[in-house]
Design a protein around this nucleic acid. Structure first.
Length: 195
DNA sequence: CATAGGATCGCCT
DNA sequence: GGCGATCCTATGT
Protein backbone atom coordinates (compact mmCIF):
# COMPACT_ATOMS: atom_id res chain seq x y z
CA UNK A 1 0.00 0.00 0.00
CA UNK A 2 1.18 3.54 -0.74
CA UNK A 3 2.99 5.50 1.95
CA UNK A 4 1.25 8.69 2.97
CA UNK A 5 3.13 11.61 1.41
CA UNK A 6 5.10 13.74 3.84
CA UNK A 7 2.84 16.65 2.86
CA UNK A 8 0.11 14.89 4.85
CA UNK A 9 2.05 15.56 8.05
CA UNK A 10 3.23 19.06 7.12
CA UNK A 11 -0.20 20.65 7.31
CA UNK A 12 -0.97 22.96 10.21
CA UNK A 13 -4.31 21.60 11.36
CA UNK A 14 -3.22 18.90 13.80
CA UNK A 15 -6.83 18.16 14.79
CA UNK A 16 -7.74 17.45 11.18
CA UNK A 17 -4.67 15.25 10.79
CA UNK A 18 -5.62 13.28 13.93
CA UNK A 19 -9.05 12.70 12.42
CA UNK A 20 -7.66 11.65 9.06
CA UNK A 21 -5.19 9.20 10.58
CA UNK A 22 -8.09 6.97 11.56
CA UNK A 23 -8.19 4.01 9.19
CA UNK A 24 -4.56 4.47 8.10
CA UNK A 25 -2.06 1.67 8.62
CA UNK A 26 1.06 1.83 10.80
CA UNK A 27 3.80 -0.51 9.65
CA UNK A 28 6.92 -1.02 11.74
CA UNK A 29 10.09 -2.89 10.87
CA UNK A 30 12.56 -3.55 13.66
CA UNK A 31 15.35 -6.10 13.43
CA UNK A 32 13.87 -7.19 10.11
CA UNK A 33 10.55 -8.03 11.74
CA UNK A 34 7.45 -6.37 10.29
CA UNK A 35 4.19 -5.78 12.14
CA UNK A 36 1.28 -3.51 11.33
CA UNK A 37 -2.11 -2.31 12.50
CA UNK A 38 -4.96 -0.06 11.45
CA UNK A 39 -5.23 3.15 13.49
CA UNK A 40 -8.56 3.28 15.29
CA UNK A 41 -7.99 5.90 17.98
CA UNK A 42 -5.97 9.15 18.07
CA UNK A 43 -5.57 12.34 20.08
CA UNK A 44 -4.41 15.73 18.84
CA UNK A 45 -2.03 17.85 20.92
CA UNK A 46 -2.01 21.40 19.65
CA UNK A 47 1.47 22.66 20.42
CA UNK A 48 2.26 25.74 22.48
CA UNK A 49 -1.34 26.85 23.05
CA UNK A 50 -2.59 23.52 24.40
CA UNK A 51 -2.25 23.06 28.17
CA UNK A 52 -2.35 19.29 27.72
CA UNK A 53 0.66 19.36 25.39
CA UNK A 54 4.20 18.70 26.55
CA UNK A 55 5.13 21.75 24.49
CA UNK A 56 2.64 24.08 26.16
CA UNK A 57 3.95 27.62 26.42
CA UNK A 58 6.90 26.77 24.20
CA UNK A 59 8.54 24.43 26.70
CA UNK A 60 11.64 22.77 25.33
CA UNK A 61 13.49 20.02 27.14
CA UNK A 62 15.70 17.17 26.01
CA UNK A 63 12.62 14.95 25.86
CA UNK A 64 10.27 17.35 24.06
CA UNK A 65 12.83 18.75 21.63
CA UNK A 66 11.67 16.19 19.06
CA UNK A 67 8.24 17.83 19.05
CA UNK A 68 9.84 20.85 17.39
CA UNK A 69 11.11 18.71 14.51
CA UNK A 70 9.47 18.78 11.09
CA UNK A 71 6.19 16.93 10.54
CA UNK A 72 6.56 13.21 9.96
CA UNK A 73 8.91 12.62 12.90
CA UNK A 74 8.20 10.07 15.66
CA UNK A 75 7.93 11.45 19.20
CA UNK A 76 8.03 8.56 21.65
CA UNK A 77 8.29 9.02 25.41
CA UNK A 78 8.03 6.91 28.50
CA UNK A 79 4.91 7.16 30.63
CA UNK A 80 4.50 5.85 34.19
CA UNK A 81 7.95 4.34 33.91
CA UNK A 82 6.59 1.48 31.87
CA UNK A 83 4.87 2.49 28.68
CA UNK A 84 6.32 3.96 25.49
CA UNK A 85 3.73 6.29 23.95
CA UNK A 86 3.96 6.87 20.22
CA UNK A 87 3.17 10.25 18.69
CA UNK A 88 3.52 11.63 15.19
CA UNK A 89 4.88 15.18 15.00
CA UNK A 90 3.03 17.35 12.49
CA UNK A 91 3.34 20.77 10.83
CA UNK A 92 6.54 22.64 10.00
CA UNK A 93 9.70 22.57 12.09
CA UNK A 94 9.45 24.69 15.27
CA UNK A 95 5.69 24.11 15.47
CA UNK A 96 5.34 21.36 18.12
CA UNK A 97 2.05 19.80 17.14
CA UNK A 98 1.65 16.05 17.62
CA UNK A 99 -0.87 13.24 17.31
CA UNK A 100 -0.87 10.47 19.93
CA UNK A 101 -1.79 7.08 18.51
CA UNK A 102 -4.07 5.53 21.13
CA UNK A 103 -5.34 2.41 19.43
CA UNK A 104 -4.76 -0.01 16.56
CA UNK A 105 -6.41 -3.09 15.19
CA UNK A 106 -3.63 -5.64 14.65
CA UNK A 107 -3.08 -6.42 10.98
CA UNK A 108 0.16 -8.13 9.93
CA UNK A 109 2.50 -10.09 12.19
CA UNK A 110 -0.02 -11.01 14.85
CA UNK A 111 2.13 -13.94 15.96
CA UNK A 112 4.98 -11.54 16.66
CA UNK A 113 2.62 -9.28 18.56
CA UNK A 114 1.49 -12.13 20.78
CA UNK A 115 5.14 -12.94 21.40
CA UNK A 116 5.83 -9.31 22.33
CA UNK A 117 2.97 -9.27 24.82
CA UNK A 118 3.74 -12.72 26.18
CA UNK A 119 0.32 -14.08 25.33
CA UNK A 120 -0.88 -17.12 23.41
CA UNK A 121 -4.05 -15.52 22.09
CA UNK A 122 -5.45 -12.02 21.78
CA UNK A 123 -7.85 -10.59 24.33
CA UNK A 124 -10.93 -8.55 23.34
CA UNK A 125 -9.26 -5.28 22.27
CA UNK A 126 -5.57 -6.13 22.16
CA UNK A 127 -4.48 -2.86 20.55
CA UNK A 128 -6.63 -0.32 22.40
CA UNK A 129 -4.54 1.89 24.67
CA UNK A 130 -1.45 3.91 23.74
CA UNK A 131 0.89 1.69 25.72
CA UNK A 132 -0.41 -1.38 23.95
CA UNK A 133 0.05 0.22 20.53
CA UNK A 134 3.78 0.50 21.13
CA UNK A 135 3.99 -2.90 22.78
CA UNK A 136 2.37 -4.64 19.81
CA UNK A 137 4.31 -2.73 17.18
CA UNK A 138 7.66 -2.98 19.00
CA UNK A 139 8.03 0.78 19.36
CA UNK A 140 10.37 1.91 22.15
CA UNK A 141 11.12 5.38 23.44
CA UNK A 142 14.61 5.03 22.03
CA UNK A 143 12.95 5.31 18.61
CA UNK A 144 11.98 8.91 19.33
CA UNK A 145 13.20 11.19 16.54
CA UNK A 146 12.94 8.52 13.82
CA UNK A 147 11.67 9.94 10.53
CA UNK A 148 8.53 8.26 9.28
CA UNK A 149 7.91 7.16 5.70
CA UNK A 150 11.56 7.25 4.66
CA UNK A 151 12.98 4.69 2.30
CA UNK A 152 15.47 3.18 4.71
CA UNK A 153 17.51 0.22 3.46
CA UNK A 154 16.16 -3.17 4.54
CA UNK A 155 17.56 -3.99 7.95
CA UNK A 156 17.14 -0.47 9.25
CA UNK A 157 14.48 0.47 11.74
CA UNK A 158 11.42 1.93 10.05
CA UNK A 159 8.00 3.24 10.99
CA UNK A 160 5.68 3.96 8.09
CA UNK A 161 2.10 5.17 7.72
CA UNK A 162 0.26 3.76 4.72
CA UNK A 163 -2.90 4.86 3.02
CA UNK A 164 -5.31 1.95 3.03
CA UNK A 165 -7.53 3.61 0.46
CA UNK A 166 -10.61 2.45 2.32
CA UNK A 167 -13.22 4.73 3.78
CA UNK A 168 -12.56 5.36 7.47
CA UNK A 169 -16.26 4.91 8.20
CA UNK A 170 -17.97 6.56 11.12
CA UNK A 171 -15.96 8.11 13.91
CA UNK A 172 -16.68 10.04 17.03
CA UNK A 173 -14.89 12.88 18.79
CA UNK A 174 -14.66 13.27 22.57
CA UNK A 175 -12.39 14.76 25.25
CA UNK A 176 -8.89 13.41 25.72
CA UNK A 177 -7.91 10.91 28.37
CA UNK A 178 -5.87 11.67 31.47
CA UNK A 179 -5.41 15.38 30.94
CA UNK A 180 -7.47 16.78 33.82
CA UNK A 181 -4.58 19.06 34.70
CA UNK A 182 -5.14 20.95 31.43
CA UNK A 183 -8.06 23.03 32.71
CA UNK A 184 -10.46 24.13 29.99
CA UNK A 185 -8.31 22.45 27.34
CA UNK A 186 -9.15 19.08 28.91
CA UNK A 187 -12.65 19.50 27.49
CA UNK A 188 -11.61 19.99 23.87
CA UNK A 189 -12.93 17.19 21.59
CA UNK A 190 -9.47 16.24 20.38
CA UNK A 191 -9.84 12.48 20.78
CA UNK A 192 -11.04 10.54 17.76
CA UNK A 193 -12.33 6.99 17.78
CA UNK A 194 -13.26 4.77 14.86
CA UNK A 195 -16.62 3.21 15.51
C1' DC B 1 21.73 15.65 44.20
C1' DA B 2 16.80 14.48 45.63
C1' DT B 3 12.23 13.93 44.83
C1' DA B 4 7.49 13.93 42.98
C1' DG B 5 4.70 12.59 39.49
C1' DG B 6 3.18 11.05 34.85
C1' DA B 7 -1.02 11.66 27.57
C1' DT B 8 -1.03 3.66 31.53
C1' DC B 9 -1.87 -1.28 32.07
C1' DG B 10 -3.16 -5.53 34.03
C1' DC B 11 -4.21 -8.07 37.80
C1' DC B 12 -6.77 -8.38 41.84
C1' DT B 13 -11.08 -8.27 44.45
C1' DG C 1 -13.32 -0.40 40.14
C1' DG C 2 -9.10 -0.15 42.91
C1' DC C 3 -4.25 -0.36 43.24
C1' DG C 4 0.64 -1.48 42.47
C1' DA C 5 4.27 -1.66 39.05
C1' DT C 6 8.34 0.89 37.56
C1' DC C 7 11.64 4.50 35.94
C1' DC C 8 12.42 8.47 33.23
C1' DT C 9 11.81 13.44 33.32
C1' DA C 10 11.43 17.80 35.17
C1' DT C 11 12.11 20.77 38.68
C1' DG C 12 13.95 22.54 42.82
C1' DT C 13 17.74 23.03 46.35
Amino acid sequence: MPLLPLSFFLRNDVVQIARELLGKKIVTRFEGVTTSGIICETEAYAGVTDRASHAYGGRRTARTEVMYAVGGTAYVYLCYGIHSLFNIVTSDAEIPHAVLIRGIIPSDGTEIMLQRTGKTKFTRNPGIGPGKVSKLLGIHYSHSGLKLNQTYPPGNHAINIEDTGTDQGSMKACPRVGVDYAGADALLPYRFILQ
